[in-house]
Design a protein around this nucleic acid. Structure first.
Length: 421
RNA sequence: GCGGUCGUGGUGAAGCGGUUAACACACUGGAUUGUGGCUCCAGCAUGCGUGGGUUCGAUCCCCACCGGUCGCCCCA
């Protein structure tokens, strides 16, 4: 037990961090081009924030949160997502300041108690983006394009972008009722899950895999036919922007978001080979959330991507860059007398800005040369007793297998010239 | 949370009631004086996720637990 990380968590080991920093670098570059600034919010918040933000009755809040009471008797929850926190920080720190659009992005751990599977961890990592303060559908389009740009800039292919509108507080309740009326007399033909969904979230019945083939499903009313004029108009404009930008998307009237705060635009990006965890990114508009949390009515859009899933997709498509180790110089010390001078040389190399290493185990020359090779060293600097006496080293070019004697005084300059030139 | 499936060394894997627990990679050492990558040789699991049980005997059978994985639910 002591030697096992908790279920659903994972160490990111030295041989894989490179993949993470690679993706993170892409994110930072992309966000700066789109004008989004990084925000880092606490890993835990008052439980109430998520109850209000995400919504009671959602699965995330009802059965997936890591909630505990702290020593000051506060109910605290490990963030299951970052939008509620971002909005909280936006309000608390008055990021709306000048009244213009506030564009934020974040990268970090989220926590959800769920049964782990590939692509579904209890601690997982999301990159997400929030644009607060603008209702223009161009921002919806920008957000979606940013999501697609991110995934495509990594080289990912076979992504499917689905788009829908889930309406607003004016038209969604109407549609909900229309839908319930439609299903009411078919209730006993639906699966058990759907019987539950009927009251809780009838829109999800449309997306049920078990009932998908039932003949009446095709006749179910579509939300896009029930949108109010404003939502309808907004939805069309988002589509226009995307089309003009050359973004392929598919309308999916069954697409529903699991968090209560979504309004109007909802979208999802899938990479099918990931199976049950194929949703790589998802998001949409949430015009009511800021007000719900005590701010002025403020329109907003955002999305989040699951980094573990992105990495899985990259792995499947063999798009992870090779991370080969690289060292400029490896110091090979032979015998007791050479240890001190070798260590001093190592220090000087590093001070000169070179990547340098050496063996401390006092192994044979052969073993040390092997190590130099494994470390990806360009040069081996061999110091034995003779070299110590002559105040020089044997400088061996590992690739060319050429070797020359260089004095202690010249070795640093010579190496710097070789490596940098 | 529900259903299925799997769990052998650092890794990938064979073995499926009594075996020296194969093989490959990795790792360590060696192949006559202080030189890596190729080759050759040697070493490397008293142990088969954990705990019970059945049996003369269990890595192989049974049960429980833990963990991975697939699907459901949900979501990123």
């Amino acid at each position: 037990m002591l030697t096992n990380a908790p279920r659903g968590t994972k160490d990111i080991l030295p041989d894989t961090v490179g993949e993470w920093t690679y993706v993170e670098a892409k994110i930072r570059d992309l966000c700066s081009r789109y004008g989004y600034q990084e925000i880092r919010t606490p890993m835990f918040e008052h439980t109430e924030l998520f109850h209000r933000g995400i919504g009671e009755g959602t699965d995330v809040v009802d059965k997936e949160m890591y909630t505990f009471t702290d020593r000051g008797d506060r109910s605290i929850t490990l963030r299951p997502e970052n939008t509620a926190s971002a909005v909280r920080a936006y309000l608390q720190n008055k990021l709306y300041g000048d009244g213009s659009l506030t564009k934020l992005f974040y990268i970090g751990s989220m926590f959800r108690y769920d049964r782990p599977q590939a692509g579904r961890m209890r601690e997982f990592h999301q990159f997400g983006v929030e644009a607060l303060g603008e209702e223009n559908p161009a921002v919806d389009a920008e957000i979606i394009m940013l999501a697609m740009d991110f995934l495509q800039s990594l080289g990912l292919k076979d992504l499917k972008l689905s788009l829908n509108s889930v309406g607003c507080p004016k038209c969604r309740p109407v549609y909900r009722k229309v839908l319930q009326d439609f299903f009411r007399d078919k209730l006993d033909e639906l699966c058990d899950d759907c019987k539950d969904r009927f009251e809780r979230s009838p829109l999800r019945i449309l997306d049920c895999k078990a009932d998908a083939d039932k003949p009446f499903m095709a006749d179910a009313p579509k939300i896009t036919d029930c949108l109010c004029e404003e939502c309808q108009d907004h939805f069309h404009k988002v589509q226009d922007y995307l089309t003009q930008a050359g973004i392929d998307f598919e309308l999916d009237a069954r697409l529903v978001r699991g968090l209560d705060y979504y309004t109007k635009t909802a979208f999802e990006v899938k990479y099918a080979p990931l199976g049950a965890q194929s949703a790589v990114a998802g998001g949409g508009r949430y015009d009511g959330l800021v007000e719900e949390m005590g701010g002025k009515p403020t329109p907003a859009v955002g999305f989040a991507t699951g980094l573990e899933r992105v990495l899985l997709a990259l792995e499947k498509q063999e798009l992870l860059p090779a991370m080969d180790k690289q060292t400029d110089a490896f110091v090979v010390a032979l015998g007791e007398a050479a240890q001190g001078p070798a260590f001093q040389l190592l220090t000087r190399l590093r001070q000169a800005g070179l990547k340098a290493g050496m063996d401390y185990a006092g192994r044979s020359m052969k073993a040390q040369m092997k190590q130099a090779n494994k470390a990806g060293a360009r040069f081996a600097l061999i110091i034995g007793e003779d070299e110590v006496k002559e105040a020089c080293v044997q400088l061996k070019d590992m690739e060319k297998s050429e070797q020359q004697k260089v004095s202690f005084d010249n070795i640093i300059d010579k190496l710097c010239a070789e490596v940098k030139g």
